[in-house]
Design a protein around this nucleic acid. Sequence first.
DNA 1: CCTACCGATCGGTAGG
DNA 2: CCTACCGATCGGTAGG
Lengths: 201, 201
Amino acid sequence: MNVLPPDRHHQILRRGLDLMSVSGLAGITIGVLAEQIGMSKSGLFAHFGSKEDLQLALLGEAERAVMEVVLTPTMLAPEGLPQLQTLVEQWFGWTVRAGLQGGCPVAAGIFELDDQTGAVRERLVGMEQSWRASLTSLTARAVELGHLRPNLDVEQFVWELSGLYLSHHVSVRFLCDAQAGERAQLAFSALLGRSGSADQA
Amino acid sequence: MNVLPPDRHHQILRRGLDLMSVSGLAGITIGVLAEQIGMSKSGLFAHFGSKEDLQLALLGEAERAVMEVVLTPTMLAPEGLPQLQTLVEQWFGWTVRAGLQGGCPVAAGIFELDDQTGAVRERLVGMEQSWRASLTSLTARAVELGHLRPNLDVEQFVWELSGLYLSHHVSVRFLCDAQAGERAQLAFSALLGRSGSADQA
DNA sequence: CCTACCGATCGGTAGG
DNA sequence: CCTACCGATCGGTAGG
């Protein structure tokens, strides 16, 4: 039961996720990542069949991180509206809590790969669709519990919520707007307000 | 008054903008761009002092394209609400109308450079701030004309509108959602609705 | 605007 | 997991 080294493969993925959050998917190079970990290029390469496989593995690591940092705490909250509110609290700006230096690698990857083809893009599309399905499920549950209007367009709700996430990302990481958190909270409150069961049209 | 060649420098910027919309800022290489135009690497390089200067010039070209394809038609509409509606019609998905093969290079650049430093990032920050100032001005004019609530938080309106643009971009270019246009229109109508002078709270 | 070239780095392989 | 190496490509330069 030796503790050191703590699994080289996992160390590569962890450090690689951090690098990906700063440099993007295409910005990852085997040489740079190997140097940061302190091993040889070919040594690191041996863990993966190709650079593409490394990128796919890093996307998997990102998915695991989101699960741990965002989705798990969300599920611990009471079902319905409380889970939606917890989700937004944990989702927006999650990379800081995950200990990453950069921004959301999924969002960055989406804009990086939106005009390309290949396995990495397809993997990322699958991740995003799966993520939105989770959001849809949480929202639908809030409707079932009467926390949101029974006639709410759940897909539209998720579509607009995703836009708030992206706008928050741009504000906080690119424009460095100190009011990013308040703006996001205000927008989310407005979205909840016009989705609420108290439908005052 | 010779017509051919139609200004090599402009040809480089035009073709480079197209390449940037597909490959992103970092994806641009002098060699690839030179080959697409049919000139030598060093011949193209001579037009710019460095790759960074080329990137800066391409951002300027993107700004010019947005001005021509989005802002100019917007200004031709009646002031206030009609201009805001025209803006969204022309802004969302503008790269197609601009004849580009890829998505919005500004949006892509924001997510690409959000964790980096340097002149290119600073230029892009300036462009985005200037763009949002234009949106703010158009929105404030709609308030002045009584088309929107006098107590509207104009900055918040622009912040949320920017989120709709990003969400639309992801839907149409990455997820290939056929309903992207409808979702964006629905969200924009809702945003206008709760910003309208007919404040039915 | 070109050819020819520079050192650095890329992903990947051979062989151990 | 390493050293040593491959061909290709990178941004950039010399010289014309």
